[in-house]
Design a protein around this nucleic acid. Sequence first.
DNA 1: AGACTGCTGTTACCGCAAGTAACGTCATGC
DNA 2: GCATGACGTTACTTGCGGTAACAGCAGTCT
Lengths: 215, 215
Amino acid sequence: MDIAHRATDQQTPAEQRRRELLEAADRVVLRDGPKASMNAIAAEAGITKPILYRHFGDKGGLYRALATRHTDALLSSLRASLDAPADRRRRVEATLDTYLASIEAMPQVYRFLMHPAEESHQTEQGFDVGRHSAPLLRRMGEELGQVIAERVDLGPAAEAQARIWGHGIVGMMHAAGDWWLGERPCSRAELVKSLADLLWGRLAEADDRPGGPGF
Amino acid sequence: MDIAHRATDQQTPAEQRRRELLEAADRVVLRDGPKASMNAIAAEAGITKPILYRHFGDKGGLYRALATRHTDALLSSLRASLDAPADRRRRVEATLDTYLASIEAMPQVYRFLMHPAEESHQTEQGFDVGRHSAPLLRRMGEELGQVIAERVDLGPAAEAQARIWGHGIVGMMHAAGDWWLGERPCSRAELVKSLADLLWGRLAEADDRPGGPGF
DNA sequence: AGACTGCTGTTACCGCAAGTAACGTCATGC
DNA sequence: GCATGACGTTACTTGCGGTAACAGCAGTCT
């Protein structure tokens, strides 16, 4: 494989190899969960451990590379829903539904992506707090915050408000989705509608129940 | 120490010992993070590993016992805010503030509590999906859902709606809090107000920004 | 008294996973 | 011809969760 050929398929042999290794790792992780061992992944790829370490440094590096692929894919689906031509309520519902449909269709990928960083390589003393969330959640929160800031008129302090809302909405979606995925208490459509209602202020509008002070 | 004495301090020697071990474990976990080893914990308690295993079964058992203590403490703080005599908006803000003040004051405890189950003892094949969230989040979500169902008049399907909202609101609070704790982009009071505004439907009310379709 | 029970605690080990060192092998560029 | 460097191996170290197997030391029952 010479330079000319390499130019046609846009991949150096090293990149090609890396892709193959990632695909093997993907299969194992999707089968065994996030606790898949490096030995198992190497075996699936038909090689042995040290090669994985040469390519990805350590386990965290491999997992980060894997997560980035899936995260990018999910984020582009979400961006498509967010950009659909419809009113705001419909867009929110479409985005929620896209997210929920994704985690419903590929629960193992979801599970893998939600595993927190683990590595941390503790900086100085103590351990980094406030970094528990999976990188996927951070990215979704940041992107949503940006979209809100761009499109919604929030008056003064809009920037801060939009970021808070971005992370808050993403967290709402995630927690409700995780719970729903485990218990399946209702259909996806019902869940989407309920969450959208929540964002549309129905909690504030609802009356107190007879017989006590309101929530 | 005979039975009569035991009755006065309400603890069998075994329970007393267990408490001591838990306190030692607490110190280590708060110092070293969730990756504290059983050896380290045993050393802190002045004993060796097998004793820990006799008391708690396995690492998950110890961590569960630790987590339950802290979770109970946090939940009772939250219940107090939730039951304060004020209108609904003030209660929501008080509860958000209580949660955020707690994680701000004891970030290591927070970090520890948010670590997912890990154990799983995989049932049949595959791994349990939809159980990523920390038990604390599940418990908060369920309790909040119950409170909403009790106090807010939601019409038909109120039960399901309330549980969804409970988990959704808890997730919102958690994700926003985690992000805030890491970046400190604003004061706690501002964060509380923004999140309450979100729940009060300000996203729905806000106008589109000039120059594009609305979010 | 003496045996039995049940708790405290120990040392020494197993199995397994992450990560590394040291060594071969083969194509490429000079 | 030969050095460079990627691809690959075996064999090792370290550290962790978890478990035997054993020892001392109450109290308790006969």
